[in-house]
Amino acid sequence: MDKILAKKDFPRWLEALGAYDVYAPQLIDDVWNYELATDRKAVSLDYPQTAIPAKKIVFPQREFFFEFREADTDDYKLKELLPEGKPTVIFGVRACEGKAVTLTDLVFGGEIADDYYWKRRNAAVLVGLACASPPSTNCFCLSVNGSPHSKEGLDVLMTDLGDQYYVEILTDKGKKLVSEGGAIFHEAKPPDKKAAEKIHADSEKKLARELKNIKDVPAKLKGMFASPFWDDESMSCIRCGICTYLCPTCHCFDINDEVESQTPLAGRRVRTWDTCQFPDFTMHSSGHNPRPDKAARLRQRINHKFQYFVEVWQNYQCTGCGRCITLCPVGIDIIKVVEKVRDHAN
């Protein structure tokens, strides 16, 4: 059954979650980001879009795989460094980010599951906040099988009704989280439900941007691999990592050894985010680079999101959050690029 939570009781809920690490959007130096809430009373869900998506909590930019240590002559001791999986709740997750997590679930799941990812993922409770109005001028979730109030990937969805939140419990994890709040939650009444539904319906009309008729884009991209289109489109690309690091669905990573002591050798094997936009991403040790220029790299980003991922998982690897557009220092606009692909003469 759906619930109602008075906004004044929201801090009480957070305080009841003592067993959890609580992340919520916070404004630091004019930039919003999901940060560990040290002062739970100060958490407010009145925020637009974070720079770094919530993926950083389930898939941190840096994590340890294991520790290696030279033991006796030529022998090594390896110590697995799995995350402890502390219960974590992320407040204010946008619908596009919840959906994005379901896409990274596909990548890190499957036959060979990624233990490090799942340890954090399984411990994380995602509390969504429906977007009454688009948090960014570049939102286009509706165009990529999403919506501003999508429940995908979320455990709880909250909708701001003014002085109270309409709270939809979506999973067992969500149920447990709400039960921690106890009596501060009340049963929602039909008018509340109606009010939430109206906000949801209205929110769909407020998106400023759209990416229409992209059904044929995957097939189109396949035929455009060798097109000079990519040279033109990538002219202004400066090969930084913003579009991918800050994408909620991008999951590429690097694995490196970080040495802490040479004799005896000791250190850790570390996973960090990586991006197809850096030239050394695909460079062979020989110096040969199958993606030698920024045209090839832009093509990879678009193809991965709108062709390869669709071929493998039947979904776009883009949830329309618009971060790559908003934050690109040179204004490369994924909507415009994909539209041009759509309209490209074969």
Partner: peptide, 15 residues
């Protein structure tokens, strides 16, 4: 505190 925030996207270098 400032440099702790860096995500090393290298946009500063790239631009």
């Amino acid at each position: 505190e400032q440099l702790e925030k860096c995500v090393r996207c290298y946009a500063c270098r790239s631009v």
